[in-house]
Amino acid sequence: MRSEAAAEQHARSYPTLVIGLAALVLALFCISLAIGYAPLDLKQAIGDAVAGRPTLAALVLTELRLPRALIGALVGFSLGITGAAMQGLMRNPLAEPGIIGISGAAALGAVTTFYFGIAGTVSLALPLGGIAGAAAATFLLFVLAGGGVGTMTLILAGVAINSFAGALTSLALNLSPNPYAVSEIVFWLMGSFADRGMPYVLLVTPMMAIGWALLLAAGPALDGLTLGEDTAKSLGFDVGRLRLQLVGGAALSVGSAVAVTGAIGFVGLVVPHLLRPLVESRPGPLLLVSGLGGAALTLAADIMVRLIPVTPELKIGVVTAIIGAPFLFSLIYRLRAEA
């Protein structure tokens, strides 16, 4: 009964929820700018940067801190919104952004550039490799989904793509020419927002924006899917087209996210789960809310990474998994108690 009253209150205040989460993201974004390893007078740095003075402070801000915070927010938003979209499509709270295999393929694409040694020599080779991997997986999924297969087949295809990409990634490690390359690959796979410059941001932002738009536009159809595919169809939604739209949206947003930062787990799984009660379990409104929640979580995790004084720096994928897994356990425990 208590949760009922709470749910009602929240349902009426969807705009408030969105504004609140957006404010939280903004606050964490600013904190992320203020925190770093080098001491920085933020006020002076901003002043210098705005005035175009190439001082050290201004460079630290624009070349290091700003891209890092931006990437954190963009990637978090992508993971959160895609997780919500996949859970809506599969009608299953255990679906996550990587379920259709895009993440695994993107990681493989990036690892391939390490393996052939072009990651370090050609600028942006790494994210472009990741994007190429994601694109290949997307092509495969489109051929499948375009042939009119159901959601279950899409999941199975995702499992197949993920395990194949995982196997090839292991192969790259296995055949790696030197231990240095191995550690480089392994560390990259753990996920990090460090040392991604502005070019990375400019590369992925347009792709992510299109992906988000595709996913957000699917909101009403995902609401309709609550009652099953037949009912969604009877409400005027083309479920086949919806699948293509969501595969496309997930590929653009998560494919480019993984391509720049490596694999960051649990965000796309836990955030929609956590925020679902606040939008009364409506899959449509959950999309935007989940995106903002994802951005907040990754920004917070990245702040934590920099506050915990260990060397080498903790990888963000490690942190999200360490926080996420026990959290998931507590959710499962709660679900069990309710059932």
Partner: peptide, 21 residues
Amino acid sequence: AQGGAVHWEMRVETLVALGRL
């Protein structure tokens, strides 16, 4: 539809509102 599967735990009012989509 037959069976009446409801995949998310919505409020009754919200569920009925889906008919307006």
